[in-house]
């Protein structure tokens, strides 16, 4: 995603990168659409009583909060506020890790009540698993951005790396906005 060669001096590299990332996001949305449709195809709106709904709400709020800090870090980077940018990225990574821990707790409970070999477990583990792998890859990207930011790679005029990683992170949040009610709330 982070592509910046010198081979296109005349073209607007930033708008090319943005379009490329958006196309990637559109493509990835189709994966989530397939995931969601398989939930309704196989399980309808069935929801086991053991599902931990409050925990679902808590990790949702954590992820939304991480989107806020990601937004703040991008805005700070855009305005040359290096400290604000780094602190907010660090908070985003922290919240992301907290989300992953939350999913881990979920999985422990789920293994006893509806393991992956059961009908609902298949859907639950696949949806949360695919989403968590997106969260993990987003965390890696944010980590790289933080590392490069410490080295002073981003300025208020050139911060595509920050913008790209943050956009991806927001997309992971948007995906969860749909997965959360689909798994935890419909019945």
């Amino acid at each position: 995603m982070v592509e910046a060669t010198a081979s296109h001096p005349v073209h607007d590299r930033l708008s090319i990168n943005r379009l490329g990332l958006w196309l990637f996001i559109i493509s990835d949305s189709f994966l989530f659409a397939a995931l969601l449709s398989s939930r309704f195809f196989l399980q309808g709106v069935h929801r086991p009583a053991e599902l931990n709904q409050p925990l679902g709400l808590v990790i949702s709020i954590i992820l939304v909060a991480s989107s806020l800090t990601a937004y703040r870090s991008e805005m700070a980077a855009a305005h040359g506020d290096q400290r604000g940018f780094r602190n907010n990225i660090l908070m985003t990574i922290g919240l992301g890790l907290l989300f992953i821990i939350g999913v881990g707790v979920e999985w422990r409970e789920a293994f006893t009540h509806f393991p992956p070999s059961t009908g609902f477990g298949t859907i639950f583990f696949t949806l949360t698993g695919v989403h968590a792998s997106h969260v993990l890859s987003g965390l890696i990207l944010l980590g790289i951005v933080l590392f490069l930011g410490r080295k002073g790679r981003f300025t208020s005029g050139s911060y595509w790396g920050v913008e790209g990683a943050v956009k991806y992170w927001h997309f992971v949040d948007v995906a969860w906005v749909f997965i959360y009610p689909t798994l935890y709330l419909v019945s």
Binding site: F30, G119, T122, T126
Partner: peptide, 30 residues
């Protein structure tokens, strides 16, 4: 760009059924 994600997911479902014993296609488990 778009439709290929669906086949990727289809193949992933088979892999999950085979490798970690999920039940996308096991009728006895829904």
């Amino acid at each position: 760009l778009t439709a290929t994600q669906f086949v990727a997911y289809g193949l992933l479902m088979i892999i999950l059924d085979r490798v970690v014993g999920m039940s996308f296609f096991r009728a006895s488990e829904g």
